[in-house]
Structure formats: C-alpha cells, structure tokens
Design a protein around this nucleic acid. Structure first.
Length: 558
RNA sequence: GCGCCUGUAGCUCAGCUGGAUAGAGCGCCGGGCUUCGAACCCGUAGGCCGCAGGUUCGAAUCCUGCCAGGCGCGCCA
C-alpha cells in the first residue's frame, strides 16, 4: 500500500514540476509512514519537508502546491491534508481497504509475497557451533534469528542459502578427543590426567562410554585411541547438533567443513592469491597479512611458526569461497564476543578486491537465564550451562523461538524461564496464538450454523463498516510493507511486535461482541456474517503467515 | 588504555532509520462474561529518552565529550 502512495506522490511531484510550481530536481529521499495518531491519517509523507531545502521554500507552501495537483489516477484517496510542519496526510477510501481484504483472502498467504529480492542471492551463515559440545542458549538465539531472517528474505523473493560452518579442523577437535580419552582412562585409572584446556561437562563422559562400547579402545595405542575419540566424538556431536536444530525448526542447506577447505587446497590457493597481490609477508618465522592497510588495528598471522594455519586463514579462504559462489550478499550471525573479528575479515576481503560492505555481520548479545528470580550463571569451562535442548524441552519450541525474537539482536536478552513457561498474558507467544485459535473457533461456530465464506465476496464486503473492522484491515495491509522493511534492515524482531499488535486489534474487535451481540462475527444477519468471516479469514491468514515465518505454530485450538 | 554494543515508565523492552502530543507488555489501582474461547477487553496512575554541548525548520534517533554496564583486544578456536 505504501508503494501506491509513493506512486501518487511521484506523479504529483512531476506534475508540479511540469506546471512550473516547483523547480526541476530529482526526487529526494523521503518517508511514507503509518502515523501513530489516527487524526494524522492512514499514511503520512514528509516529502514537502524533504523538498524544502532543495526548493528553498517553506515546507507548507510546497505541501500546498503538491496537494493542489494530487495525481490520484486510481482514485484511492478519500481525503488529503497538509498538517503540522508540512506533512501530507492521506486517508484511503474504505472501498480500497475492502478490496484489499478480498485480495488477502483470495491469495492466501502468498498475498504478501514480494519481488524485492528477485534475482538476488543471499547466503546466511549462522549457528556454526564447534562440534565439541552441545548447543547452548546463544546458539539458540542465533538459530532463531538466522532462520527467521532467512524465511522472511525467501518470502520477499531472495534466493537464499542457509549455511552452517563446521570448525572441524583445528586443535579443539583434538582436545575433544583428549578429553574423551581421558575420561575413559579415568574410569579404570583415576590418576590419569585430564587435559588443561579440556572440555568438561557430563556429555564427555557419556561420549567416552559410548565410544568405548563401540570400539575396543584397549587394543589401540594411546595416539590411535585419541584420534578415534576425536573423530567419533566430533561425528556424534555434529549429529546431536543437527537433531537439536531440527527439533528447533531449523534446517540448513549446506554444512560447510573447514577441514574440506584444507583438503581441497582452497586455503593454500587463497594465500597464493594474497601473496601475488603483495599482502603477505614473513616475520618471526610466521606468515602475516597486512590487514592494517584496510583499517584493521594490526596485521594478523595466517600461518604460525609451527607451520599450522590459523583459524583466521581458514576464515579468509572461506569467505572468498562464499563470494565466488556468486552471492550478492553474505550475512553472518556471530556472537558478540566475536566482534573484534568483523573488521579483520572485512579487511581481508578488501585485500582481495571485495567490498567489505558485501558482508553483513549481525552480532548477537548475550542471553542471560533467569529462574525463580535468580540468574543462572553459566560457565563453559566448568561445563555448567543450560543447553538449547534442555530449554526447548522445558518451555517448548514456540515460546523459545518467539521470545528470542522479541528483542533487537544487539541488545542483551534476559530469558526468564518461569515467564516463558506461563500460559498466560505474560507470555506474548500465547497471546498471538490465542488470536489465531479464537478465529478458528469462530469458523467452527459458523460451520455449526452452516455459514461459510461468501463465494462472491464483492457482494457482501461493503457490510464491513465498523471502525474496528476497517482498522483491522489497515493493520493487515502493513504486513507486506513490514516484511520488505525487515528484509532491508535485517531486523526480524519487528515481526513479533507487529503480530502482537495485529492480535491485539483482533482481540479488541472480538470483545465488541461480548457487549453487543450485533457486533459478533456470527450474528443474526447472514450477509453481515459472511462479510465478517472474510475479515476473520484475512486476519487468520496474516497471523498464520507471520507465525510461520517465526517458526512458531499456529494452533487451531489451545 | 583501545575497539564494539547498551543506557527510554517500578521491571522487560519497542520506537518504522531525522518528524507531529515518546509507545507496548508485565506490575499497581479500578471496571467488564447469560449465546462466536475471560489464555480476552476497557480505564487510571507512572517519563530530565544516562549527563552536557553541537548540527537544523525539527533530535530518543546524527556529531563531539563525559558517566555507567556488558563484551572483546593471542603465532587460541
């Protein structure tokens, strides 16, 4: 709907220029918004204010000029006015809203599909947890964010790939093997040392148990046994990670192995490329990359004195590979503790002639867990933390996914388990789901009375006249615009707020019927009932679509 | 010390990317079910948008400097 208003404004501007009311200049950046206050119209535009400095005239004068030549070819505007410092406020005709509702019902969930991303390929890399331990809450937040963002981008027409980068090459996998092996040895020799930086946690002992059941570790040398523990441990953990994510509603298109990067020779090739561009040099026996030439604080080591490549070297190569795969944009979702990394990866990309803007890194801040009014402290080193699996088992997938998206990713998130488990208004996920279930209940009631959606909606839709009914349609009309804005700003949390608002408008409308039976959806008048069923169906469509994009269920009963 | 993030109602957070009288949920206080689901609705109270400057028609939003909190500053991954 915003696009329609924009077209009117553009045509109006051209008309004003043509008639000599305004000087010929390119259209400036301006905003069309849904005002907070109803008396400011259905839509408001700040075009006249944006033009003021260019045209060197007061904004209200410009607004008056625009208004006098309003180019509303389709005839959708009921009323327009100049207000405040120079806003153009628009009221759209009721008939237009009613037609929009029919459009929603006829198209179903695809009514909000967009061509914004047509022909654009995006890679979203998220979670990317080391296969050395179970997923924790931070991974869960990243999973919810990455998956919902992916779903929204796909909905807006982008060609999208979800990718999980597996850090299976470095020392940490070796350490996993040593930790498992040590626990196995300790089961018969309690004095056997545990590695200094080893992985703690119950799961290590469980892995030791499982692997020693599969294989006769006694028959292997220590070195062979550790290698086997590392290999199997990694495999099993990866399998668990996949399962956890699947249960969380998240599936990846590509599982990209760091080890493959080494094996395929891609890593060496990347370094040769950098070498030929003159960005590598030797110092103190190590190989360095000149990231300082691209804004990094200091140069970074890519190959250590001992000949091993750094994690950073893999990452440079990995991101170059992403670029080569033809993506127009890469989005990475990282924990905030990796923020120091952003500049150096971008610097390395620029060293290879790639614009750093190509890579978008979303940093997610910490998740704190609260229970019984107390923070549950987590320590990865001590192996004490709540896993994603435990949280999902305790509070349910829907609540976890929804609540992880009620805050901007760069703001820390306090997750209150007691609140999340409540099936009451403290919990916004049930508030939204309840609206959906309520609508389903209305349709069950209608069916009992042999009433259904009209076959000729045009003939009854004019019966929607209550302000609350038209308001509900207007909120539905914001949905496609919102999804496009989310796609541009990469801010999926806005969807949860929108759905809460939509649910609220529906509950408000529904409650009219508790005071006045004439306001019920299923009422005495069959035509009016049909019209209201259209409205309910539209609201249900948007709620189901939005919940679907969040990866949250849209229940018919609760 | 340097870098990134955060600071908005008692609490947890939004604030459409610079717009009009700053919003929501919870909590407090008060009201609403005899037929579509009360897991709901309606109302009251509650604000130096961390502080101080600056930019302009206009700032919670942009810039500078402080203050407070979180995270990060390895030839670890």
């Amino acid at each position: 709907m915003k696009a329609k208003i924009a077209r009117i404004l553009e045509n109006t501007y051209e008309a004003c220029v043509k008639e000599g009311d305004l000087d010929a200049n390119p259209l400036p950046q301006y905003v069309i918004e849904v005002p907070n206050r109803a008396e400011h119209g259905h839509y408001a535009a700040n075009l006249a204010m944006a033009l003021a400095s260019i045209q060197k005239r007061p904004p209200r004068k410009i607004a008056d000029a625009l208004l006098s030549r309003l180019a509303d070819a389709e005839g959708i505007i009921e009323r327009a006015e100049v207000a405040g410092p120079g806003f153009l406020n628009f009221w759209v005709r009721d008939q237009v809203w009613r037609s929009f509702l029919i459009h929603v019902v006829e198209e179903g969930e695809k009514f909000s599909a967009s061509t914004l991303g047509k022909g654009n390929k995006i890679l979203v890399e998220f979670v990317s947890a080391n296969p050395t331990g179970p997923l924790h809450l931070g991974h869960g937040r990243g999973a919810a964010l990455g998956d919902t963002l992916s779903r929204i981008l796909e909905h807006c027409g982008y060609e999208l790939v979800r990718e999980f980068y597996i850090n299976d090459a470095g020392r940490q996998v070796r350490l996993l093997g040593e930790s498992i092996y040590s626990r196995w040895r300790q089961s018969r020799d309690p004095e056997y040392p545990f590695p200094d930086e080893g992985y703690h946690g119950q799961y290590i002992s469980e892995l030791a148990q499982r692997i020693s059941n599969e294989t006769d570790l006694e028959s292997l040398s220590e070195e062979e046994a550790i290698a086997l523990c590392a290999d199997r441990g990694k495999e099993i953990m990866l399998q668990e990670i996949r399962e956890d994510l699947k249960n969380f509603g998240v599936e990846f298109d590509v599982w990209f192995s760091e080890l493959e990067l080494h094996k395929s020779g891609l890593l060496q090739e990347t370094l040769r490329l950098l070498q030929s561009r003159g960005y590598l040099y030797e110092k103190d026996g190590a190989l360095w990359i000149k990231t300082t030439e691209f804004g990094d604080d200091k140069d970074r080591v890519v190959r250590k004195k001992d000949g091993e490549y750094t994690y950073f070297a893999s990452d440079i190569s990995y991101h170059l590979h992403k670029k080569r795969r033809g993506f127009d944009k890469a989005i990475n979702i990282w924990g905030a503790d990796h923020h120091g990394y952003v500049n150096r990866v971008k610097a390395a990309l620029e060293a290879q002639g790639i614009d750093g803007q190509w890579l978008h890194v979303l940093l997610i801040q910490l998740v704190k867990l609260w229970k019984g009014g107390q923070e549950i402290k987590m320590s990865k080193r001590a192996g004490q933390y709540v896993t994603l699996r435990e949280l999902v088992e305790e509070v349910g997938r829907d609540a976890v996914r929804f609540l992880f998206l009620t805050k901007n990713h760069d703001s820390p998130l306090d997750f209150d388990i007691d609140m999340a488990k409540k099936r009451d208004p403290n919990n916004p996920v049930y508030y939204v789901q309840y609206a959906h279930a309520r609508i389903c209940s209305i349709f069950r009631k209608a069916q009992e009375e042999s009433l259904a959606l009209p076959s000729q909606p045009q003939e009854v839709v004019n019966r929607l006249e209550l302000p609350q009914e038209l308001e509900l349609i207007r909120i539905m009309a914001q949905y496609p615009d919102l999804l496009e804005e989310i796609s541009k700003a990469l801010e999926p949390h806005r969807l949860t707020y929108y759905l809460t608002e939509l649910a609220s408008a529906f509950h408000r409308y529904f409650n009219l019927g508790t005071k006045d039976p004439a306001c019920r959806v299923v009422c005495q008048d069959p035509k009016l009932t049909q019209a209201r069923l259209l409205l309910a169906q539209g609201a249900r469509t948007v709620l189901a679509s939005g919940l679907g994009l969040l990866g949250v269920g849209a229940p018919e009963r609760m």
